[in-house]
Write a protein that binds this DNA or RNA. Sequence first.
DNA 1: TGCGTATGTAATCAATGTTTACATCGCAAC
DNA 2: GTTGCGATGTAAACATTGATTACATACGCA
Lengths: 217, 217
Amino acid sequence: MTKTTDSDEAGDAKRYHHGNLVEALITATVEIIEERGAEHVSVREAAKRAGVSPGAPFRHFRSKTALLTAVAEQAMDRLTKAVAKARSKIDSADPIEAFEAIGQGYLEWAISNPTHFQIISSRTLIDFEGSDSLRDHNEAIRRTMIDLLTQAQQQGRLAPGTDFDHLVLAARALVYGLARMAIDGHFREWHPSEPPALAAQRALRLFMSRMTIPSKA
Amino acid sequence: MTKTTDSDEAGDAKRYHHGNLVEALITATVEIIEERGAEHVSVREAAKRAGVSPGAPFRHFRSKTALLTAVAEQAMDRLTKAVAKARSKIDSADPIEAFEAIGQGYLEWAISNPTHFQIISSRTLIDFEGSDSLRDHNEAIRRTMIDLLTQAQQQGRLAPGTDFDHLVLAARALVYGLARMAIDGHFREWHPSEPPALAAQRALRLFMSRMTIPSKA
DNA sequence: TGCGTATGTAATCAATGTTTACATCGCAAC
DNA sequence: GTTGCGATGTAAACATTGATTACATACGCA
């Protein structure tokens, strides 16, 4: 009865009960994805890294897919927060500035967290449709971007003759394409002097400046 | 010595030598990808479908990765041809029209061949760097698009104040993003009346119309 | 015809996902 | 404190997979 500390991670003593296996497995899985790619994750390896037997993970995750989905949920959570933070930073009520800020926040997060972004968008490895959390967060981001563009339209800020639906499509495709290019290594041939996140931001800004009309203020 | 026919596939007789195993394995692998996704391909399953023992594929492919890379090479070959065909169809010397045609050809192929496009761009499953064929074809397409935009620039057809490098980046990201959205199922919420390929084409056209100046002719 | 080599088979191995029977701990009720 | 039950872990097993090795077969050329 020497120690009854129940809380967190700093224990060396190997107890029968891990205490925080779910978290430890997710962390270990992220590590493996970083080292070998999401396709080469193994549940046994994650268990080993968490210091636990091969069967233990299945007490918490029905399958390997469920484990990877949990990783995706954590990732999506962080992405949502990054986007929200990016938006809160600009105080302007200008919907176009807000859209740019959100796009930039999205891109910055995706580019500096390629592992997490990769698992979010690899929909054959995770059960996207089966996770309310994933679907909801994804829809929230998408709706925010559409709402801002709708505001811009209502304020007459879209370049004349612009079809709204195809503008939205192009904007989403641009942001998504830039993010995926980054994680797929397409930025390798880019100028070393300009970091990918900055280049992406400028491309997005170029796009928006051609699609919209500057505010009069 | 009844049959000495050496050529192709129409034989029911189970010969010891398959005759065209490489091709058969690639075809079988494509089938599996269509059914279960690229991450769930198994060499044994491909061997079974080709009517051959589990070890046989390794006579022709050093590893599973090598088999998947061969599939990617076949896919890239077809994509290159589709792009070339799209370009040859328009006789105009206008670089911007040519760019649009190529982009459209690229998108149409990617959207109607999601399986093949997926394997091309999943660079953790295939050995992209190790395949001269893949690198060369990829570089060729990229260079063609850049060259056309360069011509447009030299003819003074870019909207004033447009930074060339970021225009190229945005254009590539847009095309790539549209293609990936299609294969990742992001078009599901799109109007059912307008097929994804058409929507993508219009988004691309919108983008180009804002970035360039129409020809005087 | 005969033989070398490309191509296939069979057997085998280690690693993996998953299940099942059993062990151990944590914690609330007495 | 003791008891007992549910949550959490272990150990062992099974089928499937990627890959290797020793052996078998047949194609094609001298």
